[in-house]
Simulated scan of single mutants.
Amino acid sequence: MVSLPNWYFDESKMAGVDFEDPAQAESFDLKQPSSTPEKEQALVSRLGIKSGQIVIDLGAGTGTFAIQASLTGASIHAVDISQAMLTYARNKAHKAGATNIQFHRSGFLTYKHCDHLADLVVTKAALHILPDFWKMVAFLRIASMLKPSGRFFLRDVIFSFPPAEHEAALQAWIELAAKPEGQGWTKQDYEMHIREEHSTFAWIIEGMLKQAGFQIVEMNHVSPVLAEYLCEKLW
């Protein structure tokens, strides 16, 4: 890790789920049905990832997306703050024959990109570890890693319901999404996410993206609690 000022946010002290726990890393794929090889391959195709490109996956987790992207021949930088997740991802990549992935133990605020500027940065279900001020810092850092007209894809828990309706909207989300123990994220997991992590409103995220120099070219509010943005760097 790089040396940072004492006032800097410490990403290693993860809010919510402790992904330094190897058991959490091993169970992650079962809890995250949106991150199967088939679904990640569909996203790779949708984003047009191809051989010769440089792609940064921030919050790479167990590496499913990074592996599928690497199989196109692109050069992938898989970045995660959790050593347990990186170890699990490396083992998966080895089994899949994905050899063009570099793994980095780092985060949104600490990753130092030493390769050529990237064609694409992707982050999925990870940005919510940061409070809003630090999300803005992360967006500025992401922009600095991209070549001119490079693209940034963001998918996360992002709220598009009216703020005054937050209690009903969040309770409905928990009741709809929660699974029994051992079958996915539980009611307690969702309650912890809301209480301890830092998901925020779409209008805040969209303003930050524009302030960081991105043009939003595709926006999809998948549900009142989930959003996707495909952005292009303007300068």
Rank of each mutant, 00 (worst) to 15 (best):
L30G: 15
Q32D: 13
P33R: 06
P33G: 12
T36Y: 01
P37Q: 08
K39G: 05
A42I: 10
L43P: 02
L43D: 01
G48W: 10
I49Y: 13
S51N: 11
S51I: 08
V55I: 12
D57L: 05
D57N: 10
L58H: 04
G59I: 00
G61Y: 04
G61C: 12
G61M: 08
T62H: 03
T64D: 04
T64N: 11
F65M: 04
A66H: 01
I67Y: 04
A69E: 02
A69F: 00
S70M: 09
T72S: 09
T72A: 12
G73L: 08
A74Q: 11
S75W: 08
I76V: 15
V79S: 09
D80H: 06
D80C: 05
I81A: 13
Q83N: 15
Q83T: 15
A84N: 15
A84M: 15
A84I: 06
M85W: 00
N91L: 13
K92P: 12
G97E: 02
A98C: 05
A98T: 03
T99A: 12
N100F: 00
F103L: 01
R105S: 09
F108P: 13
H113M: 09
D115L: 07
H116K: 14
L117Y: 08
A118R: 00
A118D: 01
A118T: 00
D119L: 01
D119C: 01
L120Y: 13
L120P: 04
V122W: 02
V122M: 04
T123P: 00
K124S: 11
K124P: 02
A125P: 00
A125N: 11
A126P: 03
H128Y: 01
I129H: 13
P131G: 15
P131A: 08
P131C: 13
D132F: 00
D132G: 03
